[in-house]
Design a protein around this nucleic acid. Structure first.
Lengths: 344, 344
DNA sequence: CCTTCGTAATCAATCGTTAGACTAAGGTTT
DNA sequence: AAACCTTAGTCTAACGATTGATTACGAAGG
């Protein structure tokens, strides 16, 4: 029976005291039993009585009180650059599930533009969180330097010289994209991606270029553009303006893929007949015209691993950089085809 | 100078005690001054001294300690059915910004499938949050009934007989879609949307149907399908199988719009030449083939208003249902055109 | 001269949990 | 039988902020 304690929005909760009274022992005994504290001797029957009482009263320890004592909040912050990017939804999902399993709550923060202060700073300042997962991929967004104090953190979706990171194998993704295009018979390739300031772009580009080298094919055209739909649109425009237009391109983010495809269509360039296009996967890629062949990255797993790693940092370990050991895989759809025979 | 307090992940923070010592007064005095407690008399110069010390030491009250005393956590939960749906990104953004302004942190929860327990229940059970914004739109997801105790909450993106809600004017959106199609000269219309269990679908459908009635045009074909890309794809399939295919359709969610468009293309039905299609807006709609004319809903504002409303519930008010007073507006792109002259 | 009042603060209890110090009862060892 | 362990707990002081109750002091009033 929950009875209201008084003020609005407040409830009477079952406390350790209630359980102690019900079991006829001291609160500290209850605490120790419920926490399996090994430094105390309690008779099995007492233990049982306490457990039963706690169950009966539906006791849930108050994370607030616990935090006050332990100095840890049991919450983790997650910082995203842009909540509307579908990529982050997946990362968020993985992170929030794993966090829940580990007993953490997830506090959300979005990095506003340069000028508006973001809430993550306050989250740290107030010690509302035990650590921060940083999912911004640009090097210049120096999130940590802005913090008034040091907080445990891990980067995800990017590496950083400055702290542990959890990423997927972006290089393999780049490589796989090139190999797919190469296998279809293309030899003049293009890589469309963000500048090297964006760590994911750097690694995807690296993999792509290396695969080209290894195949003994000319260096791919390298088009740099922000990881947005508009960026992809523009990039495809400049790609098609080239004297010798490549026959296969890798749009190294889903958003860029969508933008690129739209630009190709606007220019009347048929995909895949005139140009093969491959991108990164998300459900959207299945519903474009034509459906985009794409490389799926284990983003959910990355989010989960990031939380796991942060948990270890919070606990005082010094984990190293982690690459999620699930390789990117190719989803074949309709945007890759052999190049048109020369002369047609 | 922050010095570590001991355990991993813990910092020495500036406390009220530090400020009190620096200002040469009692902690309680500091607390009262900093909170502008009017029930106490403090000399202006003492007040000043305290303020200066707090500033100097960069004092930030510990929300945890504060929570313990006040019974309020200063955090709000946000429950989403699906983090990867771009719609929620926008709502989230609005909510998180407003929350930050109001001094709340936002705790994230995603409603898993029916079987997996969702973290929001624990958030409430543990009193980690002062209230819950519920952004699930289906009636049968009875989130609140599952809770072990009553928690302040507001629904957003849907109405509920059971608590206050914050929505956009979905009916106006439906109406605007119909009017747009009607204005282009269409008379055989279709509405594609989720079942009436989904509140947004119900209201959008209502607006659409009413506008048709008022225009004296036959009742629109009513196709029911889940608010997903796959749902849209399938719905368009059955629409095109009709004996008399409508010439204008409203796909009443962005995802459905994207799926519908893909299906039309697969069937070789040209948009807008053979079929005019209008949907709800998000950046994606700009990059489809053809770009989709769409109706923009003030989702960010809705998220912000939901948090604002929840804040009032938390403070004990009983706010009524709110419809965000920004009307949906039409973004004209390329998917709506006059119907083909009969006989062609 | 004693009481009362107002000012300017301090004191102390409290929120719920935790962990180290401590104790009471009973049993062993020498 | 005194000294010493063990067992099975209890006591108490935190963690940091808040707030109603209390106090110390000086001035004014009767």
């Amino acid at each position: 029976m929950e009875t209201n304690r008084g003020g609005p929005g407040r409830y009477r909760r079952t406390t350790l005291r209630d359980v102690a009274a019900a079991a006829g022992v001291d609160v500290s005994t209850v605490s120790k039993v419920l926490n399996n504290n090994s430094r105390i001797n309690v008779r099995p029957e007492t233990r049982e009585r306490i457990r039963a009482a706690a169950d009966e009263l539906r006791y849930r320890p108050d994370p607030v009180a616990r935090s006050l004592r332990s100095g840890r909040s049991g919450a983790l912050g997650m910082l995203f650059p842009d909540l509307t990017n579908p990529v982050y939804g997946l990362i968020m999902r993985g992170a929030s599930q794993r966090a829940s399993e580990l007993g953490y709550a997830i506090l959300l923060a979005e990095l506003g533009d340069e000028n508006t202060p973001s809430s993550y700073e306050r989250l740290v300042e107030e010690h509302r969180i035990d650590g921060l997962v940083i999912a911004t991929s640009r090097d210049n967004q120096d999130v940590i330097a802005k913090l008034p104090l040091e907080a445990p953190h891990v980067y995800t979706n990017r590496r950083s010289p400055e702290g542990p990171s959890v990423t997927v194998d972006d290089e393999a993704a780049g490589r796989l994209a090139a190999e797919t295009l190469l296998a279809a018979g293309h030899t003049r390739l293009a890589f469309i991606g963000d500048s090297d300031e964006t760590d994911t772009a750097r690694r995807r580009r690296l993999g792509f270029v290396r695969a080209c080298e290894e195949a003994g094919v000319p260096d791919p055209v390298d088009i740099r553009t922000p990881y947005t739909r508009a960026g992809g649109f523009e990039a495809m425009g400049s790609l098609l303006d080239l004297d010798e237009v490549p026959t296969g391109a890798f749009a190294s983010s889903l958003l860029v893929g969508i933008g690129s495809l739209a630009a190709a269509r606007q220019r009347g360039v048929a995909v895949p007949d005139a140009l093969s296009l491959i991108t990164l996967d998300a459900e959207d890629a299945e519903y474009t015209a034509p459906p985009l062949s794409a490389i799926r990255l284990p983003l959910r797993e990355m989010g989960a691993a990031a939380v796991e790693t942060l948990d270890r940092v919070v606990k005082g370990e010094r984990p190293t950089n982690l690459v999620v050991p699930i390789p990117p895989n190719l989803i074949e759809r309709e945007s890759v085809a052999p190049p048109r025979p020369a002369g047609l």
